[in-house]
Amino acid sequence: MQSARSQGLAQCQHCHWVQAISKTNCERCHLTIEVRIKHSEQRCWAFLLTAFVFMFPANLLPITILSSIGAPQPETIISGVFSLIDSDMEIIAVIVFVASIVVPAIKIIGLALILISLQLRLHLNNSQRIFIYRFVDVIGKWSMIDLFVLSIMVAVFQYNDLVGVVAGFGATAFTAVVLLTIAAAKSFDTRLIWDKCLD
C-alpha cells in the first residue's frame, strides 16, 4: 500500500484533487495546498494541555448560580449531577455526567494517548489509533449540552422575581475546555499515523 506523498502526489485538502506535490496552489480550485497540517502535533499538544488546565476551574468553580429567596446557591457540574439524582432524575444525571465530565476527559486522554503512542512508538496499531481518533471526533460536540441547558434556563427565569439563574465563571472555563478539545482534534493530521508507523 502506497501513500500519495511517497509517489510524489498531494491531495488538495479543499477539493480533494490529486496533483503533483510540487504545486503550491490547487489546479482545480486554486486554493493553497497543505500536504500535511503544519506543526500538527505541537498544535494538538498545545490545545490539549490548555484544555487540561481549564478542566480544573471548569469542575471546581460554579457553572450556575441559582438565586432564590434565600442566599444565592452556586452549583458546580458535579453538584448539579447530585442534585439531579436527589430529584429522582437519574437518567438526566447520567447524561449530564457523561457529557460534561466523562466526554471531555475521554477526549483529552484519547488524543494524548495517540500523540504519546506516535512519539514513543508504543505498541498500538494504526486501526486502534484511528478508532480512538474517530471516537473522540464524534463525541466532541456533545459536551456543549450543559451550556445549551444553561442558556435555556437563563432565558426561562429571566422575568421571574422568585428564582433567577445566572452563569458562573465555571461556565467560561467549561466552554474553553469544549472548544479547545474540538480544536485539538481538528488540528491533528490523521495521515501522520501512517507516515510515522506503517503497519
Binding site: M1, Q2, S3, A4, R5, Q7, L9, Q11, Q13, H16, V18, N126, I130, T190, R191, I193, W194, D195
Partner: peptide, 11 residues
C-alpha cells in the same frame, strides 16, 4: 481515476 484517502493518504 486516481484518488487519495484524506484520512490516511492512501493512493
Amino acid at each position: 481515476i486516481q484518488l487519495v484517502c484524506p484520512c490516511c493518504d492512501l493512493l
